[in-house]
Computed example of a mutant assay.
Amino acid sequence: MSSLVARDHKVLVKAGRPASSSSRYWRSPLAWFYSISSWRSRLLLGISMLILIFLVISRSIAIVSWDQDEANFLLVSRHHRYTVLINTWKRYDLLRKSVAHYASCRGVDAIRVVWSESEPPSESLLAALEKSIRAAKNNPELELRIDINDEDNLNNRFKPLDGVTTDGIFSIDDDVLVPCTTLELSFRVWLSAPDSMVGFVPRMHWARLKNNWKQISPTFRPEQPTFTYGGWWSVWWMGTYSMVLTKAAFLHHKYLEYYTLQMPASIREYVANQRNCEDIAMSFMVANLTNAPPIWVKGKLYEIGSSGISSLKGHDVHRTVCVNFLAARYGYMPLVSSNVKAVGANLQWFW
C-alpha cells in the first residue's frame, strides 16, 4: 500500500517539475493552433484540417463498404438476377428510354413490358426496343418480351408471367429511372428478405377519429375507425411508412399469382372500375400474407414523365377511400408500420 502511494506521489512530483530544456520547445497541436495571431490564418487552417479529417473518414468507410466487384460476381449467376416489369401506357419515348436504361444494368435477366393498349406496338417501336437490347453489352443474353393484354386494366400489371426464370420482380413505371448501382443495392436488400416488398417510394396510413365519409364518398361508409392515406410529406413528417409503391419496388413473382388468382375478386373489380389503387392493393395483400412491413431503400430515382394518375385532382382523396375499402374487405388493417430505412454504407460519410 505504501509503495503505491509512493509511486503516485512520485508521478505527482514529476508532473509538477519545471519543463526541461529538451521539452521546452514542444507544444501540443491545440496550443500551436491558438498561437497563430491572425484569425484569418486560423480559419484557413481549421478548414484545411476539417477537409483532411473528412477525407480520412470517407476513405475508411469505403474500405468497409460492400465490394462492388463481389456484388457484380453474385449478379452474374442466373439465380441471383431479376426481371424488370415495366408498366406502360401511350408514352413510347419514355418506354424506349426506360428499356434502354434497364438493359444496361448487369443484374437484369429479362425485361417484360405490360402492354394494355387497344393497338399492338408499332414496328418502329419494336425495332427501337430491340436495338436497345442488342446494345446491352453487359447482358448478352438479355430477353425482351411484350405481354399484350386484351383490355385496358390496371390489374394487368400484376398478371402472372409465363416463362419467368427469376424469383425477383422489379415493378417499375415507364417514367421512372433508377440508377443501376442503386437498383443493385435494393436487389441485395430484397435477397435478404425475399417475402417482403422492397422499394423506393414509401407511403403511410394512419387512423383518424372523425368520420367524414359523406364528404368523400356517398356510397362507401366503413365502420370506425377509418384511415387516411399519407403521401411523401406525411412520411417525411411522421418518420414512418407502411407501404412501398410498385412504381419502383421489388417483390417475389409468386405474389403476381396471389394477386390474380387468390386475392378477392371484389378488390380487382374495384381497381378496374376506379382505375387506381392496384399498388395499395398489392401492399395490403403482401402485408396480410406476411404480417410484416415493407422495406424502404433510400436512393435516387428520376421521374422523366410529366403526367400520370398521381397528378390528377383528388388523387389523395381517392387513395384514402381505397385504403378504407381494402381494410373493410380484409376485416382489419393488415398494413404494418416501420421506420427502418436501408442505405448503402458506401454512400454515407458518417455512421
Rank of each mutant, 00 (worst) to 15 (best):
G239Q: 03
L45Q: 06
L12R: 01
S58L: 10
D174P: 00
I53W: 07
L326H: 08
T260N: 13
F200A: 07
S21Q: 13
T226Y: 02
A100V: 04
I172R: 07
S217H: 14
D93Q: 14
V76G: 08
F54P: 05
T226G: 01
M204R: 13
P160L: 12
R157F: 07
K300A: 11
R42A: 05
W39F: 15
M49N: 06
F170W: 10
V84R: 02
S48T: 14
V235G: 00
R208S: 08
S60M: 13
W26V: 08
V321L: 11
D173W: 02
Y259N: 09
I172E: 07
P218K: 15
K247R: 04
H9I: 00
I148T: 07
I295Q: 06
M333T: 01
G331K: 06
Q348G: 11
R91S: 10
P179H: 03
K131A: 15
S60W: 15
K210V: 12
I86N: 05
N139S: 04
L245G: 03
S283A: 12
R208K: 14
V244M: 02
K254L: 09
T182H: 07
Y241T: 01
Y92V: 11
L94W: 06
P202F: 06
R134V: 08
N346K: 11
S21E: 10
S186V: 03
V198M: 06
Y241V: 00
F73H: 09
R134L: 10
F200M: 11
R78M: 00
L12N: 03
S234E: 08
Y82V: 07
G314N: 05
F350L: 14
S77A: 09
R268I: 07
I133R: 00
S28R: 15
Y302F: 10
G308M: 08
A265W: 09
E70T: 13
Y302C: 07
V113M: 09
S41A: 14
M333K: 02
L289Q: 12
M333P: 02
M238W: 15
A193K: 10
V108N: 02
E269L: 07
V286F: 08
E278L: 08
E278K: 04
C277I: 01
G305N: 03
G230V: 07
P334N: 05
F284H: 03
G168D: 02
V336T: 12
I280F: 06
H318V: 10
D195S: 07
A207H: 04
D167F: 00
T260M: 10
